[in-house]
Computed example of a mutant assay.
Amino acid sequence: MVDLNVEMAELWGSLGAPAAGRAHVVQFVSARRGEGTSTVAREFARFASRRAGRRTWLIDLDLTTSPQYQAIAAQPDRYGQLGSGAAASPDGSMFFTVQPPAPRPDGGVWPDAKYVAAHSVGGPRLWVTRFKREALRGRQKAHILPGVEYWASLRRHAEIIVVDCPSADSSQAALTIAQHMDQTVLVVSAQEADVRPPGLLRDALASAGGRCAGVFFNQASVTPPSFLRAILP
């Protein structure tokens, strides 16, 4: 595995480390699949919780496979042991909705918050979410919501919220929640020569009310390029 500790320290400083006790939400997204966004988001969350000592939540918006939970579970020596599942919403709000809703025996419907769990990672400072896809029934599907309720609620319980978003060529999630993020970092493979897709995504995020912090060039060689540059022209 590539060690990104140095790059994460530089990224932390370049984004402008938030004041202690002040919640900050950072979204990571790429224009295309395969750029390494999940790795970058996970390492940034690890840095924020361990090196910076902030209460950090890693929110995985990939509701198909929950890759963050899977990756952390596979590397306990690096990230720490996963704790048992707990409620991922402080007040019952959620960043997605499951449709059609599942009825309950009491006549109500199964709340959206019940479909996701939060797991501590090696202690109380880092948490990661896992969508319970196995709980879906029949034609049920989860849809990302544009509302602010969940993000506002979580800000009261975490200092750093890292959002790992599916690539823009596979999902509209990044645009749906863009306005509620303090910053968005575009992840691009260091070997990628075509900057047009990230540029188009930057423009789309801005139109959706997002704030792009810059581009992280994910290292693919021994000597990585500059990790965070000005917004692409």
Rank of each mutant, 00 (worst) to 15 (best):
D203Q: 14
G147T: 10
A208L: 15
P18K: 03
L201M: 11
A88S: 04
S84G: 06
L82C: 00
F95M: 15
Y150V: 04
P90I: 06
D62T: 06
S171G: 07
F95Y: 14
V222A: 11
Y115V: 02
S89Q: 02
L4I: 09
E159T: 11
L175E: 02
A88F: 02
C212P: 13
S89C: 05
T176C: 14
F95W: 15
H180N: 13
V121T: 02
F227W: 02
F96I: 11
D112A: 08
A113Y: 06
W127Q: 12
S170I: 02
H143K: 08
L4R: 11
M8N: 07
G210T: 10
Q172L: 11
H157T: 13
A88M: 01
V185N: 12
L145C: 08
C212N: 15
V185I: 13
Q99Y: 15
A102P: 12
P100V: 09
P103M: 14
K114Y: 03
A48L: 07
T184E: 10
S14A: 15
T39Y: 05
L154S: 13
I59C: 13
R137D: 10
V26F: 10
G122E: 01
R137P: 07
T97D: 12
Y115M: 03
G108E: 08
E192N: 04
F44I: 05
L4A: 08
L61E: 00
K141C: 07
R55C: 06
T97G: 14
L145P: 07
Y150D: 01
T37R: 05
A86M: 03
T39P: 03
D106E: 12
G199I: 04
S120N: 03
R22E: 11
K132R: 15
M8G: 01
A17N: 10
G92Y: 02
S171Y: 00
L15R: 15
A41C: 05
G122T: 05
K114C: 03
T184M: 12
R54F: 03
Q183L: 12
G123C: 00
A23N: 13
E10M: 08
V29L: 06
